[in-house]
Design a protein around this nucleic acid. Structure first.
Lengths: 215, 215
DNA sequence: CGCGTAATTATGCAAGCGTATAATTTCTCT
DNA sequence: AGAGAAATTATACGCTTGCATAATTACGCG
């Protein structure tokens, strides 16, 4: 009954990679990119560190894969609800704002990941490209929704004005997202979304109402 | 002409501490807290690493001091312009919004520092206290300015409404601050402040105009 | 059922980390 | 000018890190 060699079970490459990526995201959120050590990740994923090198040629590659995974998840969670709405452009805009300010998009862990990755995103070209693509997509979608909703209301606006509105609404959503994630207990349930809808309404002159969902 | 012992000049404790803190902030902004190594900081401050231990009992203490220094700087830069305005509450609110969206408050390095420190801020009680104090002060000042400006305009609002307005305006400023710092070339000079003033105006119903400064 | 292959573990290495402490230099004071 | 004290440098230690490679185990396939 002394120290025996560790038992293990074989898993598919996809399952192992995903487990390693999820463990990586946990540790990056907790301790930053440099604090997420290969040994720590292996322990969290319940394997030994050597296995990481078997699936990822370096820690750098694992970090990049984890970032990509996270950004895809965030993007999906943000856009899925609005794309399910069949009604007016206004309803789609409302759903978009609401989804951006509701869990799991609003989440302390998402904020921590955003902050932890920022340095690396600005230095690594591949991560920078992923970031800018996701960000531009978000803002373009928002601007398109605002444009459509204004036209729908019979109040079209010139491109310069639409650009400013999109920047402002984007900033508002980002700021509320940040506050909600950083201080989860500072807001009552639904308060964040309500403030978001009211503020976007005030800035655009549109009337965003809740619960305009259609399946 | 071989390796001689390094020449040096004595400096005052305050000067050395400040130099070490500034070097620390540089490296933290570039590489994160864990990436800011004692050796790297010493090199950046043009001293040897042993000197750091002479002024700070640990790296932890140096990091904390650097964070405190940075937060004080940011707070000063944000509040100084508005406190110099003698005119109406509306003018002070305008100056406050403008200062929050102008360099050196809006700065890529400030964003990087904010992100780099976030993890440690959430774990270290002392840094957490510093952060929450600064943040609460910012939001309280903003809410007070909005309240005063609304009363001044003969349009007082109930506390719940004032709270929502402060949260929304705070989020907008945070978001614009983030975008301006993360994408410095995406905005024309003065554009960020203009969007900020217009959006706060739309949300509050007040008319924020530029250039209402009084010395 | 046993054999081969690939998944997984185990071990080791060189570099960098924060910290501790001894050796030396600079400056002030008389 | 010279001595004492403090600032600064130099060196070393133990630990952790990412990465490499050898040793073993699990499992599909004949």
């Amino acid at each position: 009954m002394t120290d025996e060699r560790r038992k293990f079970k074989r898993e598919s490459a996809e399952a192992r990679k995903e487990a390693l990526i999820l463990a990586t995201l946990e540790l990056v959120a907790e301790n930053g990119v440099r604090g997420a050590t290969v040994r720590g990740i292996a322990e969290r994923a319940d394997v030994t560190q050597g296995l990481i090198r078997h699936y990822f040629s370096s820690k750098e590659e694992l970090i990049t894969a984890a970032y990509e995974h996270h950004m895809t998840f965030m993007s999906d969670q943000t856009f899925a609800p609005a794309s399910g709405v069949q009604g007016s452009a206004l309803a789609r805009l409302t759903a978009f704002v609401t989804a951006s300010l509701t869990p799991p998009v609003v989440d302390p862990r998402a904020i921590a990941l955003w902050a932890s990755f920022l340095n690396k995103v600005q230095q690594d070209p591949q991560m920078k490209a992923t970031h800018e693509r996701t960000y531009a997509y978000f803002r373009d979608q928002l601007q398109a929704l605002i444009t459509a909703a204004l036209e729908e209301a019979g109040r079209p606006a010139p491109p310069a004005r639409l650009r400013q509105l999109a920047i402002a609404c984007n900033a508002l959503i980002d700021g509320l997202w940040l506050e909600g994630g950083a201080l989860p207990d500072a807001f009552a349930p639904g308060e964040l979304e309500e403030i978001g809808r009211q503020s976007v309404a005030a800035m655009t002159g549109l009337n965003l109402e809740q619960g305009a969902e259609t399946s």
